[in-house]
C-alpha cells in the first residue's frame, strides 16, 4: 500500500488534488492511503515552495499545481 501525502496549507487546490488521486487510484484498483499535510513545519521539511505538492512514501514527486490525470497515473504506477 502506498502512503500518499498531499502537501498544502489548506487551499482548494490541495483538496482537489487529494480527491483526484483517490479517484484515479480507485479506478486503477491501486490501494492508497491519502493524507493531507497542512503543518507548515512538515511542508518545510520537504523543501517545497509551491503547493499543492505530492509525496509518495516520504519522497517528493510533484509540486506547484494540481497534477493532471496522466501525471497521477504515472505517479501511482511507479
Amino acid at each position: 500500500m502506498k502512503k500518499i501525502e498531499v502537501l498544502g496549507t489548506g487551499c482548494k487546490k490541495c483538496v482537489t488534488t487529494a480527491e483526484q488521486i483517490e479517484a484515479v487510484a480507485g479506478e486503477l484498483g491501486i490501494k492508497v492511503e491519502v493524507e493531507k499535510v497542512t503543518d507548515p513545519a512538515a511542508i518545510m521539511g520537504y523543501q517545497v515552495m509551491s503547493t499543492p505538492a505530492v509525496a509518495i512514501d516520504g519522497k517528493l514527486v510533484h509540486s506547484g499545481s494540481v497534477p493532471n490525470r496522466n501525471k497521477i497515473e504515472t505517479l501511482l504506477k511507479t
Binding site: 498544502g8 487546490k13 517545497v48 515552495m49 509551491s50 503547493t51
Partner: peptide, 16 residues
C-alpha cells in the same frame, strides 16, 4: 507567478 495560498511554503522556503 504565485498564488496567495502558497505564501506559507514560500515564506518557509526562503527563510530556511
Amino acid at each position: 507567478p504565485f498564488c496567495s495560498c502558497s505564501s506559507i511554503p514560500l515564506f518557509l522556503g526562503f527563510t530556511s
